[in-house]
């Protein structure tokens, strides 16, 4: 099969690595070869966290520049930062949440105008999602990553189905959080379809 290359970016604490694990566990259970890169250690402390996921035939965990098929961006500015790895057909799912780095707080440089840049870049496959609000609806604020996985699945690029993700959630997360995580996941799917529908 064609390798599907997914980059997940965000800030330490947003659940970027768990999101990769959920997708990777789901594809593994479907017997699809999957490789993922993780970043541990100091970067976790409020720094940038970026995970590459390669589903299908690949050797290394790092996606070559330009070959990213899907960017799942958990934080607006970090999504923009990752665009230098994207090709012209890359699908970008951008969570509108802004996490202000301290370099902005102490006045080193301003937080960028996301809307303006997105417009300027004229990306044809970018979908903006308010994942935080949707996660709040489920009562589980930490389920932002599940909303994003939902949107990613709805994009149709991942070789798995809803049930595969639900099974992965059940094999990774503790039981008390299954319901809210799966609900968040479903809200993500719905939201993607709603926005995509509005475009067409």
């Amino acid at each position: 099969m064609k390798t599907v290359n997914v980059t997940i970016v965000g800030v330490g604490g947003q659940g970027v690595v768990s999101a990769g694990m959920i997708i990777g566990t789901a594809t593994t259970k479907k017997n699809i070869n999957t490789i993922m890169s993780e970043i541990h250690g100091m970067a976790q402390r409020g720094g940038i966290v970026s995970v590459d996921l390669r589903i299908g035939d690949a050797y290394g965990p790092i996606i070559p520049n330009g070959l990213v098929d899907l960017i799942i961006g958990f934080e607006a500015m970090e999504t923009l930062r990752s665009l230098n790895r994207a090709g012209k057909d890359t699908i970008v799912i951008l969570n509108k949440e802004k996490i202000i780095p301290f370099t902005v707080n102490i006045g080193d440089s301003p937080y960028p105008d996301i809307e303006k840049i997105v417009k300027e870049k004229d990306l044809k496959n970018i979908i903006e999602i308010g994942a935080v609000e949707l996660a709040k609806e489920t009562g589980n604020y930490q389920a932002v990553n599940m909303v994003m996985i939902g949107a990613a699945l709805a994009s149709g690029i991942l070789p798995i189905e809803e049930k595969d993700i639900e099974d992965a959630v059940k094999s990774i997360f503790p039981e008390f959080s299954w319901e809210s995580n799966i609900n968040a996941f479903k809200l993500g799917i719905k939201e993607f379809k709603k926005i995509k529908g509005a475009y067409q």
Partner: peptide, 20 residues
């Protein structure tokens, strides 16, 4: 052999790791 990417010439603030 390099593959072309989206031109990303935007200057973005850095985000170094911080004390929690």
């Amino acid at each position: 052999y390099s593959i072309s990417t989206v031109n990303q010439d935007i200057k973005l603030p850095s985000r170094p790791p911080v004390l929690c």
